[in-house]
Amino acid sequence: MLQTLWQFRFFIIASVHGELKSRFARSYLGGFWFILQPLAQAIIFSVVLSEVLGARLSQTGSKADYAIYVLSGMAAWGFFLEIMNRSLTIFTDNASVMKKIAFPRLCLPLIVLGSSLVNHCMVLLASMVIFAILGHPPGWAWLVLPLGMVLIAGLAFSIGLIVGIFNVFSRDVQQIVGILLQIWFWLTPIAYPPGTLPQGFGWITALNPLVSLVAIYQRALLQYQWPELSTLLLPLAIMLVLLPGAFFLFRRASPELVDVL
């Protein structure tokens, strides 16, 4: 399967380029929308929680630090969410293409992964400019961000491929996953500092792989700190289990995908 994907690598790259280009079509701002939408959401969160609710990080009273904390977390979460949401419907959205053109079906999730990665890099560059304006220039710890990107992409791709396959056979999966993602967001320290949740939720935080992955961004971008490698063992283990499982499930379900669609 991987050998076939390598043979279609130029098709995947061209599809990613074509998809990004189509988003710019007939738009005056073009690629800026990739940046403006997630940044607007993050700024709303930071303004509402810091100004209206009076939220602050425990170790600082600076409004700028809290905004950077939220923007960092939202960048990581937005990357995960985009891959998940698009992978969830990737096969149903491209049903007509799959019926007419012969190509490895696994190319579709990889195209989603590629375009989401480009979008995420643009968001990070825009965030870094905003951080510099807020008096928070780049530091050496920011070099750890590619590690966070790889882990988040691997986890999101694995889960997204699995739920995308199940969504072909039952459209209820899309609705269920949408609800679970909303709950997942609020169980991850993005809009609030770590340790804010009641003690009864501690076990949920300990089993949530996104807690340590989001923390990579928050620690690097805000505190100029490298992550503790021990905290990355859980998301790495989950990814290493889910990724082969996703490929195995796809291989078993692939012959029936087009017929069901």
Rank of each mutant, 00 (worst) to 15 (best):
I159D: 11
I159Q: 00
L161G: 12
L161K: 06
L161Y: 02
L161T: 15
I162R: 01
V163P: 05
G164T: 14
G164Y: 03
G164I: 13
G164F: 05
F166V: 03
F166Q: 11
F166N: 07
F166P: 07
F166H: 10
F166R: 05
N167V: 15
V168T: 12
F169V: 03
R171W: 00
R171C: 03
R171N: 05
R171P: 01
V173D: 06
Q174S: 15
Q174L: 12
Q174C: 09
Q175M: 10
Q175G: 05
I176R: 02
I176W: 03
V177K: 04
V177N: 01
G178H: 01
L181D: 02
L181K: 11
Q182R: 08
I183C: 15
I183G: 14
W184D: 04
W184Q: 06
W184P: 00
F185W: 11
F185R: 04
W186C: 08
W186R: 09
L187F: 12
P189H: 03
I190F: 08
I190L: 12
A191M: 11
Y192Q: 06
Y192P: 02
Y192S: 01
P193T: 09
P193N: 13
P194Y: 04
P194V: 11
P194H: 07
G195A: 09
L197Q: 08
P198Y: 09
P198T: 11
P198Q: 12
Q199H: 10
G200W: 10
G200Y: 10
F201W: 15
F201N: 13
G202W: 07
W203H: 09
I204Y: 12
I204P: 03
I204H: 05
A206Q: 07
A206E: 12
A206T: 06
A206K: 04
L207S: 04
N208L: 03
P209Y: 00
L210A: 03
L210V: 01
L210I: 01
L213S: 05
L213H: 04
